[in-house]
C-alpha cells in the first residue's frame, strides 16, 4: 500500500471536523444531557431541578412494570432479530435460485422496505383489527379468537409479526448481494461433492455469508430495540394499557406522555449502557468466529 502524507499535521483533524461536530452535537451532547438530567427531578415548564441522586435509577429498576417491559423487550428483540434474518435469508436463497423472472421476485420482495414504519404499523393495525382484521379471521379458522389490545400474547405476537415483516426486505437485500459475491466456481465444486442443496447451504454457503449475517444481526437487534417504536405506538393506539411494551416505548411514555423528565432520562441511560454492553459482547464473541476474506 502506498502511504500519503498531509502537509500539515492538523489537516486530517480539520477534515474530520464536520463529522466530529455532527457526532458531538447530535450524539454526545444529548447523551451527556440525558445522563445529567437522570440525577434530577425536573419541572417540565421551567426546568427547575431538584437533585435526587440515583433515585430515578432505583425506581426504574425496582418497578414491576419496568421488569415486565425488559422481559418483553428481550423476547421481542430475539424473535424479531432472528426471525427477520432467517426469513430474509430464506427468501434471498430462494430468489437467487430462480431463473425466470428473477428481477420481478426481487423487486416485489424489496418493496416492503420502502414502506415507512408508521404505515407498516397502520397496515398491522388493520390486519389485526378485532372487528375487521383479515388475520384475526384467519386465526379464527383454527378456533382462536385473537384479541389484539386485550390479550397480552395476541398483542405481543401481532407486534412481532409486523416488526419482523418490516425488516425482512432489509435482510433480503443484504443476503442477496452476499450470495452474489460467492464465486460460481465454489458453488459448482460444492455441487459436484454433495447432492443435497440443504447440506450445501449449511456447510458452504452459510459460512461464506457469515460476515453479512453478523452485520445483519447487529443491525436487526438495534432495529428491534429502537426502531420498532412507531409500530408499537400505532398498534397499541397510543394507549399502553396492559399491552406489552418495549423499553424504548416506555422511555417515550414516561418522558413525553407523562412529562417525567428525570425518570425517563434514567431509563434511557440504562438502555444506553445495555446497548453498549450488547454491542461489545457481540463483537467480542461472534466476530472472532467470522472470517472476512
Amino acid at each position: 500500500m502506498q502511504s500519503s502524507r498531509f502537509d500539515s499535521p492538523l489537516t486530517p483533524y480539520f477534515l474530520l471536523l464536520p463529522q466530529m461536530a455532527i457526532i458531538a452535537i447530535f450524539f454526545l451532547w444529548p447523551a451527556a444531557e440525558a445522563i445529567w438530567s437522570s440525577f434530577f427531578l425536573e419541572d417540565p415548564f421551567f426546568g427547575t431541578r431538584t437533585f435526587v441522586g440515583l433515585e430515578n435509577y432505583f425506581e426504574a429498576l425496582t418497578s414491576a412494570d419496568y421488569r415486565r417491559a425488559a422481559w418483553f423487550t428481550a423476547i421481542f428483540t430475539l424473535i424479531v432479530a432472528l426471525g427477520s434474518l432467517a426469513l430474509g435469508m430464506w427468501l434471498a436463497v430462494a430468489a437467487d435460485n430462480v431463473l425466470r423472472g428473477r428481477s420481478a421476485y426481487k423487486t416485489v420482495l424489496m418493496w416492503v422496505y420502502a414502506i415507512a414504519p408508521p404505515v407498516a404499523g397502520l397496515i398491522g393495525v388493520m390486519l389485526f383489527d378485532q372487528h375487521i382484521g383479515p388475520l384475526v379471521d384467519f386465526v379464527g379458522l383454527f378456533g382462536h379468537k385473537m384479541k389484539v389490545g386485550v390479550n397480552w400474547w395476541d398483542t405481543a405476537i401481532a407486534m412481532m409479526i409486523v416488526a419482523t415483516w418490516k425488516q425482512i426486505p432489509y435482510n433480503f437485500i443484504f443476503v442477496l448481494s452476499g450470495l452474489q459475491s460467492i464465486p460460481n466456481s465454489v458453488r459448482e465444486a460444492a455441487a459436484i461433492d454433495c447432492r443435497s442443496s440443504v447440506r450445501r447451504f449449511w456447510t458452504v454457503i452459510f459460512p461464506l455469508l457469515a460476515p453479512t449475517t453478523f452485520f445483519l444481526l447487529v443491525i436487526n437487534i438495534t432495529y428491534a430495540l429502537f426502531e420498532t417504536f412507531g409500530i408499537i405506538d400505532l398498534m397499541v393506539k397510543g394507549e399502553p394499557g396492559n399491552n406489552p411494551k418495549t423499553l424504548v416505548y416506555k422511555v417515550f411514555l414516561d418522558g413525553f406522555r407523562g412529562n417525567d423528565l428525570g425518570g425517563s432520562s434514567a431509563q434511557s441511560v440504562i438502555l444506553m449502557i445495555l446497548v453498549l454492553v450488547l454491542t461489545i459482547a457481540q463483537f467480542r464473541l461472534l466476530e472472532r468466529r467470522i472470517h472476512y476474506k
Binding site: V150, W152, E239, G241, N242, R257, G258, D260
Partner: peptide, 21 residues
C-alpha cells in the same frame, strides 16, 4: 399531578384484572 401516568397505571391494572393476570 402526573395524572396521565396514573391513568396508564389504572388501565394497565384493569387490563390485567380482565385478562386474569
Amino acid at each position: 399531578g402526573y395524572y396521565v401516568q396514573i391513568r396508564d397505571v389504572m388501565n394497565r391494572e384493569y387490563g390485567r384484572i380482565i385478562s386474569g393476570e
